[in-house]
Measured scan of single mutants.
Amino acid sequence: VTTYKLVINGKTLKGETTTKAVDAETAEKAFKQYANDNGVDGVWTYDDATKTFTVTEMV
C-alpha cells in the first residue's frame, strides 16, 4: 500500500489531499471521484516519481 497525493488547482477549490491505495490506478479512481464530488473538472497529470496526481481546471 502506497500513499498518493492529489494537488487540486481548481477555479474555486485549491488544495491537497492524500489517499492510500494498492496502485496508482486505484488512487486515480478515488481522486477522480473526490474531484467529481467537489465539482472539479480539469486536466489530469501524474508524476510517478513523487506519486502525485494534479488536476488543473482551465479558466
Rank of each mutant, 00 (worst) to 15 (best):
T12Q: 09
L6Y: 01
A49P: 08
G42V: 02
T50V: 05
A24H: 12
V59M: 13
N38H: 14
D47N: 09
F53D: 00
T12C: 12
N36W: 14
K14P: 06
W44V: 02
D48C: 05
D48E: 13
M58C: 12
T18C: 09
T56W: 09
V1D: 10
D48L: 07
G10V: 15
A27V: 02
T52F: 02
T45S: 12
K11M: 11
L13Y: 12
V7Y: 11
K14N: 10
V59K: 09
N36D: 06
T26F: 07
K11Q: 11
A49Y: 09
G39N: 12
N36T: 15
A35V: 08
T12P: 04
V40F: 11
T54F: 08
G15H: 14
T52Y: 02
K11V: 12
T50N: 07
K5L: 07
T12V: 13
I8G: 02
K51S: 05
F53N: 00
V22D: 10
D37F: 08
A35T: 06
N36Y: 14
Y4D: 00
V40D: 01
A49E: 13
T18V: 10
K32A: 05
K11L: 14
T2D: 09
N36L: 13
D41S: 15
K29H: 08
K20Q: 14
T19H: 08
V7D: 03
E25I: 12
E16D: 05
T56P: 01
T3I: 14
K14L: 07
Y4I: 01
K20M: 15
T18Y: 14
V43S: 08
T19E: 05
D41E: 14
D23Y: 04
A24K: 14
D47F: 04
F31T: 00
G39V: 03
N36G: 09
K5W: 09
T3Y: 09
K20S: 14
T12F: 13
E16L: 09
V7L: 10
T54Q: 05
K32S: 04
T2V: 13
E25M: 09
V40Y: 06
T2P: 06
K5A: 04
T26L: 06
A30T: 14
V7C: 06
V55I: 08
T26H: 11
A21T: 05
F53G: 00
Y4L: 00
T19Y: 13
T50C: 04
V40L: 10
A35G: 03
T56D: 10
V59C: 13
D23G: 04
Q33I: 14
T17I: 14
D37Y: 08
G15L: 14
K14V: 09
E16K: 06
D41H: 14
T45Y: 07
D23H: 04
K32D: 02
G10P: 03
A21E: 04
A24T: 10
